[in-house]
Nucleic acid binder design. Structure first.
Ligand SMILES: [Mn+2]
Ligand SMILES: [Mn+2]
Ligand SMILES: [Zn+2]
Ligand SMILES: [Zn+2]
Lengths: 140, 140
DNA sequence: TAACAATCTTAGAGTTAGTCTAAATAGTGT
DNA sequence: ACACTATTTAGACTAACTCTAAGATTGTTA
């Protein structure tokens, strides 16, 4: 359970109070929050006013530093932020919008499936539906 | 080679001049245009001013009627419109943004891959990379 | 420890890709 | 022709960002 300060320091990102609270929040949720959800969640953990620009600056800095990933799970939807930086897929609960991580190995690799005609450098898979019994409920 | 009027009539959509030119344009391109590209492409084929609202109204009507599909191919990108309404995947050329249709059968089905824990009603796969020699070049 | 520079944060303006509204126009049935 | 419905239009509005310019904080050097 690495502290946010440790993570930031190890990636060469200066641990300002704003960055620390945002990073702490992201490291401790599986909910794939939006920028607005991050802002709302951490704003009152700081003695100063937290601006939207700082939230976006920080999120971009964290992506750049490899601390988080930016993911898009819904067609036409806004960016969500994910401290799980391993290659993985997503399942979107169509009833309530909850997002579940799907381990990369749970899905057959498609890396070679277009080999005849395309050089695939990356691909994304997003599943939609409903979880069956026994999936750990996720907030949001 | 169905005419736009025929297609609209067969789906019970009244073939106004605006709808006809938009439908014609979409039936004759593989480029997956955005709403703005549709507007720019068809505007001067009409004797009247074509409004942005009409373009969106028409695109939504055509989606509703099953004449086209709305697709999102790039993270954070805007909607694109696709007269190929068969279930298929997309390949995005990362060099120039061109989008190629990938037949559904070209990729192993993932419908059952999460069966243990999830009821998957749909999924999307988008590939990124570069086409190899011999792919028919697509506009845009 | 006092400058000074670089970095970071802020409020608010600007942009993009839409949606919404209310009024004008066109088509339909009688 | 008349009433009624469907469609189109310009432009206001919104959500999700991005940009800017000024102020605050921090690190570096003297
Ligand atoms: Mn971004
Ligand atoms: Mn839409
Ligand atoms: Zn995730
Ligand atoms: Zn397509």
């Amino acid at each position: 359970m690495d502290t946010a300060e440790t993570v930031l320091a190890s990636r060469g990102v200066r641990p300002t109070p704003q960055r620390v609270v945002i990073t702490e929040y992201l490291l401790n949720t599986k909910s794939h929050p939006t920028a607005d959800q991050v802002l709302e969640a951490v704003a009152n953990a700081l003695p100063v006013q937290l601006s939207r620009a700082t939230v976006y600056n920080t999120l971009h800095t964290l992506v750049e530093a490899g601390v988080i990933q930016e993911v898009y799970t819904e067609p036409g939807g806004c960016a969500r932020y994910d401290a799980n930086t391993e290659r993985h897929h997503h399942f979107v609960d169509t009833k309530n919008g909850c997002i579940y991580d799907i381990p990369f190995e749970a899905v057959p690799s498609l890396d070679k499936s277009l080999d005849d005609n395309y050089k695939v450098s990356n691909y994304t898979v997003t599943f939609f539906g409903e979880p069956k019994q026994g999936q750990p409920k996720q907030e949001s």
